[in-house]
Each structure stands twice: as C-alpha cells, then as structure tokens.
C-alpha cells in the first residue's frame, strides 16, 4: 500500500514501531541494565549510613588516617564506651524519650476525637475545619518561631522541656487531625449503628467497634508523631539553653567542636539516635507507607 494512502494519524503511530524494533536491546541486556541502575541507586542511598556505622566502630587513629579506607580493618566499641560512660548522653536520651512520649499521647488523644467527629458527624464546619487543619501544617516554622519565643519568655517557659510540648503540638497536631479524619472516613459507620441497636452506649460503640477498626491509622499517626518529635532540632535548639535539658539531636550537634570534632563518638551517637527510629520503621513499614502515602495523596 502507498504510504500516502494511510491516514496521517495511523502513519504517525506506526512509525515509532519500526524505530523501536530496530533499537530494542535484547532482554537479558535490559534486565542487566535495570539491575545495575538499581545497585547504583542502592549504594548511593545506603552508603552514608554504612559510613556512619563504619566510623562509629573504628579505632581513633584509623578514623583520622589519610587517605581514609573504605574497608574496615578492625572493629572496636571504644567510641560507644566513651559516649555512654558520661551521664550526658543518657540524660539527652531521657529528655528525648519524655518529650516524645508526652507529645505522642497528647496528639493522638486530641486527633482521634477530632478526626472521629469530623468524619462521623455533619456539623457546622465539618468540611472547612479539616482543610483549615491542613493549612495549619503548611505554616513556615520560622514565622512561628518568633511569637513562640516571645510567648515562652513571657510565661517563663524558655529553657524548659514542658514549654516545648505546646510548640511541638503546633507542628504535629494539624496534620494528625487531617490524617485521622482520612482514616475514620474509611470506617463503615453502619457497624456503629448496629452496635448501638444492640444496646451499646455511644462510648462502648466507639471504644469496642470503631477504634479497633481505625487502629492501623492510629498506629501510623502515632509513629509519625514519635519520629518527628524524636528528630526535631530547630525549636529545641532555639528554646533550650542549658546543657542538662538538651534532647538527642541537640546533644549530637553539640558534639561538633569549634576546632576539632571526635567523629567516632559523634557517629556512635548518630547510630544510637537513629536505631529506635529504624527499628520502629522496619517493624511497621507496611502500615506506615500505606498510611502516609494514602493520607497525603488521597486525603
């Protein structure tokens, strides 16, 4: 058939087919290329993590040896011992733990009730309130920093771990409510009505029927809050002044010296700070990924 006789659209469509066939690499080569790319991405992503662990278990002279060697020649726990012998690190860990637990409990309690009410009941503002919450999450911390500073000073809560709790709530709670509403709106509420028919009180129906079904969402939100509180640096570094009240990220950054830094001890601290987060993440990976992804994209 003459090419001119083919409809132009069709000709356009058939053209790349020819090109594609002639340029197609054989399947084993393509598979090999994919694996090579994956390995490059994997090494790129994991290497700094490896380097942190490697530095943390090296003897001091080897850390500062030039040129640095990629492969470990010997391992020692000396850096960890140096880090943990002083009381400082334990205190930082306790401060972080205390703060994380309090902020998590408060935000989960508040966001579960609010999220449930927004998903379950239609009332004045049940549509605009969640959007308003999402807006709250986007406010730049640097704008909040100054009023917080002025307020905490006024209240005498500067340099206090308790003073950080309301500050952290500003940074977590709006998104918690938004995510929680998303999770509750997927729960079939006919079950609650059925439980009420069977003689449950409002509270029992909520506690025994709705809450267990929303559990994956609650776990995801709680974990999200835990991780972010544990890692937070900006507010803590601005509002905490004395050494004894530092949190872990603050303590770590304090290990950077003006002239010399003991990188072995610092990296050991990094490993210990990251360990609980990694542990939580890999235990809950499935729930978290679907929770955060679903919440952020699906609303």
């Amino acid at each position: 058939m003459d090419t001119a006789a083919i409809h132009p659209r069709q000709r356009e469509r058939s053209a790349p087919r020819v090109v594609k066939r002639s340029f197609q690499l054989p399947k084993p080569v393509r598979t090999a290329l994919v694996y090579i790319t994956l390995w490059i991405a994997f090494i790129w992503a994991v290497f700094p993590f490896y380097w942190m662990i490697a530095t943390s278990i090296r003897p001091k002279d080897e850390i500062f040896q030039r040129p640095p060697s990629l492969i470990l020649n010997g391992a020692t726990l000396q850096n960890y011992i140096d880090l943990l012998v002083g009381a400082q690190f334990w205190r930082f860990a306790m401060n972080s733990l205390l703060l994380t637990v309090s902020v998590t409990i408060i935000s989960v309690l508040i966001s579960v009730t609010a999220g449930y009410a927004m998903a379950r009941h239609r009332f004045k503002g049940s549509v605009t309130l969640p959007l308003f919450m999402l807006y709250g999450q986007m406010f730049p911390p640097v704008l909040l920093l100054i009023p917080f500073y002025v307020q905490l000073r006024f209240l005498g809560w500067l340099d206090s771990l308790w003073g950080l709790i309301p500050v952290y709530l500003s940074y977590m709670l709006p998104l918690c409510v938004w995510l929680m509403r998303g999770f509750f709106s997927q729960v079939p509420f006919s079950l609650e009505d059925a439980a009420r028919m069977d003689g449950c009180t409002r509270w029992q129906a909520f506690w025994k029927v709705i809450l267990p079904m929303a559990r994956p969402g609650i776990v995801a939100v709680a974990t999200w809050v835990m991780i972010h509180t544990w890692n937070e640096f900006l507010y803590a570094s601005t509002f905490i002044l004395s050494d004894t009240k530092r949190t872990l990220p603050l303590g770590l950054s304090g290990l950077i010296g003006q002239y010399t830094t003991d990188w072995g001890v610092l990296m050991a601290g990094g490993v210990l700070t990251a360990a609980p987060i990694l542990l939580v993440f890999f235990i809950l990976q499935k729930q978290l990924v679907s929770g955060i992804g679903g919440g952020a994209v699906k609303g």
């Binding site: 992503a45 994991v46 700094p48 030039r66 640095p68 544990w230 990220p249 987060i277 990694l278 890999f282």
Partner: peptide, 28 residues
C-alpha cells in the same frame, strides 16, 4: 527498603554524617 534508608535516618544524624563525609582533610 535500601533506597528508603535516607528518608528514615533522622535528619540531624544524616546532616552530620554528610558533614563528616565532606571533611576537607579525611572526608570519604
């Protein structure tokens, strides 16, 4: 899982590790 590691590492820990890797005299 491997590619997700940077997302999971606490940001302060990650930044300090990179600062160490960029070290002008013994940085990897």
């Amino acid at each position: 899982s491997g590619i997700l590691v940077p997302w999971v590492v606490p940001s302060v820990v990650a930044v300090l590790t990179w600062r160490w890797m960029y070290d002008p005299s013994v940085g990897i």
